[in-house]
Design a protein around this nucleic acid. Structure first.
Length: 1126
RNA sequence: UGAUGCUUAGCUCAGUGGUCAGAGCAGGUGCCUUAUACGCACAAGGUCAUCGGUUCAAACCCGAUAGCAUCAACCA
C-alpha cells in the first residue's frame, strides 16, 4: 500500500488498459470473479459461438460488450457467472473458403481431393483466426473462459447432437420428405440460398409466357358459372379458367389452379383471339384491362369478323375467389405419364392461396406442386398430389408424347436447340387452349457456376416437425424478456406463427452427419437413428456379425474415431429384418449445431444415459439451463435465437433463455453497411489500440440504444474519451493533488452526513439517486440509460458543480473538519463511480478503484470487479435539496446569460438580483442556496419579490392537464378568456381562490389550482426566464462596484504573473505597482483582500517602474513588478 | 413481396398526449489559470420524413406514402 495517490501526467487509456490486463493475468482476476462467488446463486449466460473462420469486426465488439457488461454487473450483484466460450466450426462459409483456397468446386470433392483430405483442410481452416479472436477478446476486456471452449466439430459435441436427433426421431418429429429447392440441372446440384444470393445470379431474361385456358367441369361449385352462360343463350357453354405462366414446361405437371379468396373475379363472354371460337373465361376483375379493350365491351359476339382489332367482350358474372374454391377442370395436357393416379392425390381443382395477387397474370395461378414452393405448400394443403414430369437432367420424362426427352431449357448448349416452351405454346394455341402467348422479360435466378437458369425442384430432405410444437413455442416465447420487446413480439413472434418445418438437410461435406441409416430400395424401408458413440460401435459390430465379410472391418477394433464424413459413410448397419443399411448422406444445418449448445457444450454423461435420465448431460448442465441471459445481433433472430428456442421446446417444452438482448447493426458513419468492398470497415484492433477499449465500449453503449442500428464514428469515441474519461480523470487528479498534500488516507472517523455541509449532502443525495438509477437501468438491461446517467453526473454534478464550487475547501485553511468532509465526500463519489461504471468500462474503473483503495485500504478486494455493486442509501437522498440545488444552477445560468447580454464580465461585482417568488416554499428553497448563488455569479444581494411588492407582472395560463377532462371542447374559449385577464383579474383569482367566467353564455367556475400563474416580467428590468423561474439583474455599476471590480481584475493579473514566473502555490511574493489615479482608491480599499489572494504582504505604489511588466486592468494601463519573497 | 425497426438542429442522439421541442458535438461569441482551453459560459440553430385521421389539444396515438436498414421470401 503506497502512501500517495498516483498522479498521472496525462490520461492514456490504452496504456492503462495494458497495465490492467497484466494485473488481471497475474492475479487471475477473472477466475477469482467466479471463485469468490462459489456457492452463490448462478446467473446463467450462454455464449453464442462465433466462427473463427473470419476476422472479427467492430460489430462483434458491441455484442460482446453487451454480454460482458451484464455478466460483470451480475457478478457485482453477488451472482456466480460462469461463461464458457464456444466456436462454431461447421458450415458453408468455411467450405466455400476452403474451395476458394484450393481452387476447386464442389464437384471436385471426392475426385480431385478425397473427402478425408478436404475435411482435414476445413478442420484446419476453421480456427484460422482463433488467435485474432482471442486477442480481441482479451483486449476489449471481454471476460469469457477461453481455456475450455465448446467446439462444434468435437466428437462429444456431435454425439450430443445425435442424441438429441434420436430423441426427436423417437418422438416422430424427424421425418423425410421432399421440399422444393433451387436446383441447377446443368450442375446437377441443389443450390443454397447463399449461392442464390450471390451477385449476378438474378438476370433479366425473356421467356415465352402463356395465358392458358383450363376447361371447367360443371359441378356444385361451378354451376352458377354455367347457368350464367346459359342465361346468356348458350346451350353447351364452354367455360375456362385463365392462368398465366412464364414456364410453360411446368404445364404437364399442373395439378391445380389457385385463386385469392378475397379477389374479385369475373366471367367474361368473348372469343378466343387465335381460333375465334366463342368462349367464356374467368379472370380477376382488376386484370380485365390487360386482355380486353374498353371499346370492345358489350359488343355482340356475332359482330366480330376475322382480322378485327377489337375483341368483343361482356361480363356475365362477378364473384370472389372463395366462390369457386373446389371447382374442377379438365387436365390441360393429359398423357400417360401424368395421370391423376400418378399424381397420387385428387388433382385438377381450384384452390385458395394467400400468395395470389392481381399485379400481373390473370389472378389465377397455375399450380405445379413440384416446381414452386408456394405451389407445393398449397398443393399439400389440398392434397392434389405431385407430378414431377422433368428429371434431374432437366428434360421431360418418358410418357409425355412428343415432348418426352426434351430439355425444358437449353442446359446442354445444344446446337439448334428448339425451345420446348414455344412448342407447347403452339400446341395449346391450336387446341383452343391459349389466350395469349408473348415474350415476357423478368428477373430469374441463374446458377452462378453454369450461368444456366435454376429450376425449383423437389428434392428429398429430412425435416424436424417444428410445426407440431408451434403453439407451445408461441406460448413459451411470451415468457421471454426480449430487449427490445418488438424483436420478440414482432419479428420473432411473427416468425413462430408462420413457422414451417425445419429443413435439416444439407448436401455438403464438412458438418454434423445425420445419424440415420436406411435400407436400400423402395419397399419396406427401415430406418435406424443412432444416438451416441457406444450405440454406433455396438451396431457396427452387430452388422459385421449378421452380414459377415468385410463389413465395417476398419471399425471393429477401436470403433469409430471421427464422426465426420467420410468415415460415417463407410459404416453399414443391419436392419431389424437383417438387411444392410446405409447412412443417409445428408449433413445437418449448422444452425442445429449452435442451437443445441445448451446441452452439447457439456456433452453426454453415460451414467445418466444408462440410467435413462431424460437430461443425460454432464454437469454443470443441471444448474446451467435455461440461460438467464443471451445477447447477439438482431440478425440471429431467425438463426440462433430460433434454433435455441426450437430445440428446447422440442426436447423439454421449456425456454432456452429467459432474457434476450438483440443489438442492431453497426454501420459506418454515413449509415452505410460496412463491407470489405467499400473499404469502410472499422478495424477493432486499431480502434482499441488508439482510443482504448473503455472509450470504445463506452461509446458503443451510450451513443444509442444497442438495438438501434448505430452509425459508428471514431469522432464519437474521441468525444467520449475527452468529455467523460477526461473529466473523470481530471476530477481524480484534482483529488489526488490535494489529498497527497494533506496526507488524506481516510484514516479519520467517517463523518456522519448530518455533520457535513449542505453541498456535501447535496452531492451525496445526487450520488445515491444516481446509484438507484443505474441499478434500475442495468436490472432492466438498459445499459445506455445507465451510462448516460453516469456521464451526466460526472460531467455536470460532480466536476462542474461540486468540485468547482468546493475548490477552495481543498486548499484553504487547516486540515480539519470541513476539509476532511470535502475529502471524504469526494473520495466516496469517486469510488462509487468506479463501481457504477465498472460493467461498462472495466479497465479505467479498476484503475480508479485501485488508485483510491491502494492508499486507503478500505476494501479487501483487489479488483473493482470483485466488489459488490453499491446500494442506494435512501436516507441520503433528499429531493428537496436536489431541487434547490437545481434551482441554484438555473438561477446562476440565467444571471450569466443576462451578464453576457450586457457584456459585464463575472469578475465585475454587481449589486443585486431580483427574483419573483410566488410562494413561500420557493423563497425558502432559494434562501438556503443564496450564498452559493451570490458567490457564483458575483452579486451582492438577492431580493425576493413577492406579489404585494407590486413589481411583478403576472401571466396566467390554463393548466391543461387539470382542465382538459373537465372542459373538453370549451378549452379554447377558456384559454382565450384567460388570455385577456388583467393583472387585477389574476390578483382577484389568487385572493379568492376561484373566479367565475362566462363561456358560451354559460357560467363556469375556475379554481386557482386549475390555472398556472407565472411572473414572466418585471417592468423596467432586464429579465431572463426558464420555465416558471424568472430572474432580473440590476446592471447599475456604481463607482464602488467598479472599484471592487478593478481590485478583482488586478488580483487576476497578478495571479497570471505568478504562474508565468513559475512560483509554487505557497510562495509568498512582494509586489510593486505604478501609481495610477484611477486605481489608487481601489487598491487602498481592497488592500487586504488583494494581498490575501495573491499571497503578498503588501502592495507598494511607486511612481515609475522601468523593469515592470505591463498589464491592463479594465483598460487602465500600469506596470507591476513581482518578486518572490526570500 | 412480407415481417420488424428507424426517420427530431449541419452531425450523434434524448423526449413526453398539454400549447415556446431538448442535450452533446461541430460552427459563432465571450471568458483562462492554486483540477481541467482536452476547460467554462452564453447565444444562434427545427416544416419533429410526407399526407391524412382521432382529440379541446399530436413530434407523441391511428392509417397511408416515401426513404433507409435487417431478416425472410422471390413467385404464376
Amino acid at each position: 500500500m503506497s502512501a500517495k495517490y498516483q498522479e498521472f501526467s496525462k490520461l492514456n487509456l490504452p496504456e492503462i488498459e495494458q497495465e490492467i490486463l497484466a494485473k488481471w493475468d497475474a492475479s487471475q482476476a477473472f477466475e477469482q470473479s467466479m471463485s469468490l462467488r462459489e456457492g452463490a446463486p448462478h446467473f446463467v449466460f450462454y455464449e453464442g459461438p462465433p466462427s473463427a473462420n473470419g476476422m472479427p469486426g467492430i460489430h462483434h465488439v458491441i455484442s460482446r460488450t453487451l454480454k460482458d457488461l451484464v455478466c460483470r454487473y451480475k457478478t457485482m450483484q453477488g451472482f456466480q457467472v460462469k461463461r464458457k466460450a464456444g466456436w462454431d466450426t461447421h458450415g458453408l462459409p468455411i467450405e466455400l473458403g476452403v474451395e476458394k483456397e484450393l481452387g476447386i468446386t464442389k464437384e471436385d470433392i471426392g475426385k480431385k481431393i478425397t473427402v478425408e483430405e478436404y475435411n482435414q483442410k476445413c478442420r484446419e481452416a476453421v480456427m484460422r483466426f482463433k488467435d485474432k479472436w482471442d486477442d480481441l477478446t482479451r483486449k476489449m476486456g471481454y471476460w469469457v473462459d477461453l481455456s475450455d471452449p465448446y467446439i462444434t466439430f468435437d466428437n462429444s459435441y456431435i454425439e450430443t447432437l445425435w442424441w438429441i436427433l434420436q430423441q426427436l426421431f423417437n418422438k416422430g418429429l424427424l421425418y423425410e420428405s421432399v421440399s422444393i429447392q433451387p436446383y441447377s440441372p446443368a450442375a446437377g446440384t441443389g443450390l443454397s440460398s447463399h449461392e442464390l444470393n450471390m451477385p449476378g445470379t438474378y438476370k433479366n431474361v425473356k421467356d415465352t409466357s402463356a395465358v392458358v385456358m383450363f376447361k371447367a367441369i360443371e359441378n356444385d361449385r361451378s354451376k352458377f358459372l354455367f347457368e350464367a352462360a346459359r342465361v346468356n343463350g348458350e346451350e353447351q357453354p364452354e367455360i375456362f379458367f385463365m392462368a398465366w405462366t412464364t414456364t410453360p414446361w411446368t404445364l404437364p405437371s399442373n395439378l391445380g389452379l389457385t385463386v385469392g379468396a378475397k379477389i374479385n373475379y369475373v366471367l367474361v363472354e368473348t372469343l378466343n383471339p387465335y381460333t375465334h371460337i366463342p368462349v367464356n373465361v374467368v379472370l380477376a376483375k382488376d386484370l380485365i384491362g390487360k386482355y380486353f379493350k374498353p371499346e370492345g365491351e358489350n359488343l355482340p359476339i356475332g359482330s366480330y369478323k376475322e382480322g378485327d382489332k377489337i375483341l368483343p367482350w361482356t361480363i356475365i358474372a362477378e364473384f370472389t375467389g372463395a366462390d369457386i374454391e373446389e371447382a374442377r377442370y379438365e387436365q390441360l395436357m393429359p398423357y400417360e405419364a401424368n395421370s391423376a393416379a400418378a399424381a397420387g392425390g385428387d388433382p385438377f381443382r381450384v384452390l385458395v392461396g394467400d400468395f395470389v395477387t392481381t399485379e400481373d397474370g390473370t389472378g389465377i395461378v397455375h399450380t405445379a406442386p413440384a416446381f414452386g414452393a408456394d405451389d407445393f405448400k398449397v398443393g399439400k394443403k389440398y392434397g392434389i398430389g405431385i407430378l414431377t414430369m422433368v428429371d434431374k437432367q432437366g428434360k421431360f420424362v418418358d410418357g409425355l408424347g412428343e415432348f418426352s426427352g426434351r430439355y425444358v431449357k437449353d442446359y446442354k448448349d445444344e446446337k439448334g436447340y428448339v425451345d420446348v416452351n414455344v412448342d407447347i405454346s403452339v400446341k395449346l394455341k391450336k387446341e383452343n387452349r391459349a389466350f395469349k402467348i408473348e415474350k415476357y422479360e423478368h428477373n430469374y435466378p441463374h446458377c452462378w457456376r453454369t450461368d444456366k437458369p435454376v429450376l425449383y425442384y423437389p428434392l428429398e430432405a429430412w425435416f424436424i416437425k417444428t410445426t407440431a410444437l408451434r403453439d407451445k413455442m408461441v406460448e413459451l416465447n411470451k415468457t421471454i424478456n426480449w430487449k427490445p420487446k418488438s424483436t420478440g413480439e414482432g419479428r420473432f413472434g411473427n416468425w413462430l406463427e408462420n413457422m414451417v418445418d425445419w429443413n435439416l438437410s444439407r448436401s455438403r461435406f464438412w458438418g454434423t452427419p445425420l445419424p440415420i441409416w436406411k435400407t436400400e430400395g423402395e419397399d419396406n424401408i427401415e430406418f435406424k437413428c443412432i444416438g451416441n458413440i457406444e450405440e454406433l460401435n455396438s451396431e457396427i459390430r452387430k452388422a459385421n456379425e449378421v452380414l459377415g465379410g468385410d463389413v465395417n472391418k476398419n471399425y471393429l477394433h477401436e470403433g469409430i474415431l471421427d464422426l465426420h464424413k467420410p468415415y460415417v459413410d463407410e459404416i453399414v448397419l443391419v436392419s431389424a429384418s437383417g438387411r444392410p443399411m446405409k447412412r443417409v448422406p445428408d449433413l445437418i444445418d449448422v444452425w442445429f449445431d449452435s442451437g443445441a449448445m445448451p446441452y452439447a457444450q457439456w456433452g453426454l454423461d453415460y451414467d445418466k444415459l444408462k440410467a435413462g435420465d431424460p437430461r443425460p448431460f454432464k454437469a454443470p448442465f443441471n444448474v446451467s439451463f435455461p440461460a438467464d441471459y443471451i445477447a447477439e445481433g438482431v440478425d440471429q433472430t431467425r438463426g440462433w435465437f430460433y434454433t435455441l428456442h426450437a430445440i428446447a421446446s422440442l426436447l423439454y417444452e421449456e425456454v432456452a433463455f429467459k432474457t434476450c438482448v438483440s443489438n442492431g447493426l453497426v454501420l459506418d458513419k454515413d449509415g452505410n453497411k460496412m463491407s470489405k468492398r467499400l473499404g469502410n470497415v472499422v478495424d477493432p484492433f486499431k480502434t482499441i489500440n488508439e482510443f482504448g477499449a473503455d472509450a470504445t465500449r463506452w461509446y458503443l453503449v451510450t451513443n444509442a440504444s444497442p438495438w438501434d442500428n448505430m452509425k459508428f464514428d471514431l469522432e464519437g469515441i474521441r468525444e467520449v474519451q475527452r468529455k467523460f474519461f477526461g473529466t473523470l480523470f481530471n476530477t481524480y487528479q484534482f483529488f489526488a493533488l490535494y489529498a497527497n498534500v494533506d496526507g488524506f488516507a481516510f484514516k479519520e472517523q467517517y463523518i456522519p452526513l448530518a455533520e457535513r455541509p449542505e453541498i456535501d449532502r447535496w452531492i451525496f443525495s445526487s450520488l445515491n439517486t444516481l446509484v438507484a438509477k443505474v441499478k434500475a437501468s442495468l436490472d432492466d438491461y438498459e445499459p445506455t440509460q445507465a451510462g448516460r446517467a453516469i456521464e451526466e453526473f460526472v460531467g455536470e454534478q460532480l466536476s462542474n458543480w461540486y468540485v468547482r464550487l468546493c475548490r477552495r475547501r481543498f486548499w484553504k485553511g487547516e486540515y480539519e473538519h470541513d476539509k476532511i468532509c470535502a475529502y471524504q465526500t469526494l473520495y466516496e463519489c469517486l469510488e462509487k463511480i468506479s463501481l457504477l461504471m465498472a460493467p461498462i468500462s472495466p479497465f479505467f474503473s479498476d484503475r480508479l478503484f485501485n488508485a483510491l483503495n491502494e492508499v486507503t485500504g478500505l476494501r479487501q478486494e483487489r479488483s473493482v470487479h470483485h466488489v459488490l455493486f453499491p446500494v442506494s442509501d435512501n436516507a441520503a437522498v433528499d429531493a428537496s435539496l436536489e431541487e434547490r440545488m437545481q434551482l441554484a444552477q438555473d438561477i446562476c445560468s440565467l444571471i450569466l446569460s443576462l451578464r453576457k447580454k450586457v457584456n459585464i464580465k463575472v469578475r465585475q461585482p454587481l449589486q443585486k438580483v431580483l427574483i419573483p417568488v410566488l410562494d413561500p416554499a420557493m423563497k425558502a428553497q432559494i434562501l438556503k442556496v443564496e450564498d452559493l448563488i451570490k458567490s457564483e455569479v458575483n452579486v451582492k444581494e438577492l431580493q425576493y419579490l413577492t406579489e404585494d411588492s407590486g413589481f411583478i407582472k403576472k401571466k396566467i395560463k390554463p393548466n391543461y392537464i387539470a382542465l382538459g377532462k373537465k372542459l373538453g371542447p370549451k378549452m379554447k374559449a377558456v384559454a382565450a378568456a384567460l388570455g385577456s385577464f388583467t393583472q387585477d383579474d389574476i390578483n382577484r383569482l389568487e385572493k379568492e381562490g376561484s373566479i367565475s367566467l362566462l363561456i358560451d353564455n354559460e357560467p363556469l367556475i375556475l379554481q386557482a389550482n386549475e390555472v398556472d400563474i407565472t411572473s414572466e416580467d418585471i417592468p423596467g428590468w432586464m429579465v431572463a426566464n426558464k420555465d416558471s423561474l424568472t430572474v432580473a439583474l440590476d446592471i447599475t455599476v456604481t463607482p464602488e462596484l467598479i472599484s471592487e471590480g478593478n481590485a478583482r481584475e488586478l488580483v487576476n493579473r497578478i495571479q497570471k504573473i505568478r504562474k508565468d514566473n513559475g512560483y509554487e502555490l505557497t510562495d509568498r511574493i512582494m509586489v510593486q505597482l505604478t501609481d495610477h489615479q484611477e486605481l489608487k482608491g481601489s487598491i487602498a480599499q481592497f488592500n487586504t483582500y488583494i494581498c490575501a489572494e495573491i499571497l503578498a504582504d503588501k502592495l507598494e505604489l511607486v511612481p515609475e517602474l522601468p523593469d515592470g511588466t505591463e498589464i491592463e486592468v479594465n483598460d487602465i494601463p500600469l506596470k507591476v513588478f513581482v518578486t518572490k519573497k526570500a
